[in-house]
Every structure is written in C-alpha cells, then in structure tokens.
Simulated scan of single mutants.
Amino acid sequence: MLKVGIIGGAGYTGGEMLRLLINHPEVSISFAHSRSNAGKPVHAVHPDLIGDTELRFAEKFHDDIDVLFLCVGHGEARTFLAENHWPAHVKIIDLSQDFRLAEKAVIGDRTFVYGLPELNRDAIRSANNIANPGCFATALQLGLLPLAKAGILKEVHTTGITGSTGAGQSLAATSHFSWRANNIQAYKTLTHQHLKEIGQSVKQLQPDADGGINFVPWRGDFTRGIFISSQLECALSAEEVYVLFEDFYKDHPFTTASREPIYLKQVLNTNKCVIQPEKVGSKLVVHSAIDNLLKGASGQAVQNMNLMFGLNERSGLNMKSIGF
C-alpha cells in the first residue's frame, strides 16, 4: 500500500483527492492536513464522505509517506516547499501552477515534470516530482496535440466555458449562486494564465508552431465541467482528421476521440476527456470536454501517481459518469 499525504485537504481539489484515494485499492491516507480544520472529521467539511472514512484533518504532517499531494493555492506550493524539507524518497505531485512552466520547474534539488500523461507518459513514469496541468490547459491542449504532432497546427481561435468550482472554494463576487444563476460572462480574454503551459506543450510536438492560441474563457451557470471549442484552418479531410485523433489517443485509456457530437455530461464525475473533431469546409473545429476537478485536477493527479509507481493507470479511477 502506498502511504499518501495531502496538504490542503479542505478545498475543492483536496476534497476530490480524498474521495478518490479513500477508494483507491492500493493507497492508505497517512494524513490530510488543513490549518483551518485541524482536528475536525473529514466529513465535517466534506459531508458526502460521512460513513466512508473516520479520518480527521491533521494539524501536523510527517514524511513517513511515499507521495505528497499539494492541493494548495497558486504561489503557496513553492512557499510550502521552500519552508519544509522533504526527503528524496517522497514523491511530490503539485496541483497548483507553480511548477508547470519549464523556467519555473526547479526548486532546490527537485525538478518537476509536466504531468499530462497523453504527452509525457514516459517522463512521468520515471519522475519524482509532477506539476499537474491546469484544467483549461488540459481540455484545450488535448484537443490540439494530435494536430501539433502532425505539424499542421495553425492559428487557433478557442472559446471555453467552465463551472463555478474552477474558481476555487473561496467566495468571490462571480462565484455566488445569485450571480452565476442564469448568467454567463467572458473573462481574462486572450490573457488566461494557462496559455503559457499550452504553448509550451504545443511547441514540444511542433517547435515551429507560432500562429498563437486566441482563447476566450467563459464563466458558466453550472458547478463543474469544461467544454472547449477550438477553430482553425485545416486542409485534411474529415476522415483523415478522425484517423489522426484516433491514432494519437489509441493507447491512452482516459482520452477518446468521437465521431459523434459530444456533450458535458459524458465526462462529469469521471477522469475522461472526450474529443470531437468536426470538419466544415476548410475549417476544423475541435470540441473537447472534461470534468475540471477530475481530469482537470485531482483525477489526473491520481493518474500521474499510478504511472509514477508502476500501478495500473486506471487504478482508483474507474468512475461512472452522471449520465443525466
């Protein structure tokens, strides 16, 4: 059994991590740390876990573990690792954006590998530290990587909508129910922070890709999930595009190319990404959908852990979609 520690177990990603790991057949949770909830039962903060675990939030943490998940805010992971020494045998998976870019991937004697399995599976298997991708970044780049691998990615115009959980658990004006209900808003137009990591991944497969990704994210009137539509010029036929995507993802258990229209409920409560390429004249539109808290965060982190420790990639992640 792998011994696991969680820092930041009270938030959305920490809660999802607990839900997954409590049911993982090869994991034992050594501690789930929370400064603000120390001593409380986990189900006092995550009420759905009542009856599933007697675990309490820990005030202190220790290094008698195999892997540490950092479910803390952006900027907090780097500070935490600078202030707390962890022995080399403890593998670290960070869910913040602190180590995703190559120029920021090192702290002390630790170097972080970008944890997108569909791109870096072999590197993840031999890594000691993982920078888990962002949620929008995961959905968007999984829709583009087959095109980059073929060397045909051009300027992309993308829109994407996300649920309120993408904003984190702390309340803000735009995450209140009364604001979100029956509402939609564009934000961070063409400036979203995930664009840099997306560009980094694209250039890994297509170094001459310089057309740019023009991304307009939207806040949606729902709690979880991301739906992306990316549009670009493409000379391939519809059949050639289908084959390109199917071949790229044939060995990746959680990402599937569909020839039929896709929708958000296909992926909610799963670690799946579904992708639909759609050819209309000279235009290619690639739709992709994920659950932002699972494939976009905690589920992908567990997938990375499975790869790092030589476990079945699907272990602990065989979940059903909500369906309807």
Rank of each mutant, 00 (worst) to 15 (best):
263 Y>N: 14
249 Y>H: 04
236 L>K: 09
211 G>Y: 07
245 F>D: 02
203 K>H: 12
251 D>Y: 03
210 D>I: 13
247 D>W: 04
255 T>K: 03
235 A>P: 15
218 W>P: 00
238 A>H: 06
230 S>T: 12
210 D>T: 14
225 G>V: 08
264 L>E: 07
228 I>P: 04
226 I>G: 08
234 C>K: 06
249 Y>N: 04
212 G>H: 10
214 N>E: 07
213 I>F: 06
248 F>Q: 00
216 V>R: 12
251 D>V: 00
217 P>L: 09
248 F>M: 02
204 Q>G: 09
255 T>G: 02
202 V>I: 15
221 D>Y: 04
244 L>H: 05
251 D>W: 00
260 E>I: 13
256 T>L: 04
252 H>R: 14
233 E>W: 13
220 G>Q: 10
262 I>F: 08
249 Y>C: 02
220 G>D: 08
257 A>C: 12
209 A>I: 10
264 L>M: 11
245 F>I: 01
227 F>E: 10
222 F>N: 10
221 D>Q: 07
232 L>Y: 00
209 A>F: 15
224 R>V: 12
235 A>Q: 13
205 L>G: 04
262 I>R: 04
256 T>H: 12
263 Y>T: 14
236 L>V: 03
241 V>H: 05
203 K>I: 00
212 G>S: 10
220 G>V: 11
260 E>F: 09
231 Q>S: 15
228 I>M: 12
221 D>W: 03
204 Q>H: 15
256 T>C: 05
216 V>P: 11
228 I>Y: 04
217 P>R: 12
221 D>K: 05
240 E>N: 12
206 Q>G: 04
240 E>T: 03
259 R>F: 02
214 N>F: 14
250 K>L: 11
207 P>L: 13
244 L>M: 09
220 G>K: 06
230 S>A: 14
251 D>I: 00
249 Y>Q: 03
230 S>R: 06
217 P>T: 11
249 Y>E: 00
262 I>Y: 04
260 E>C: 08
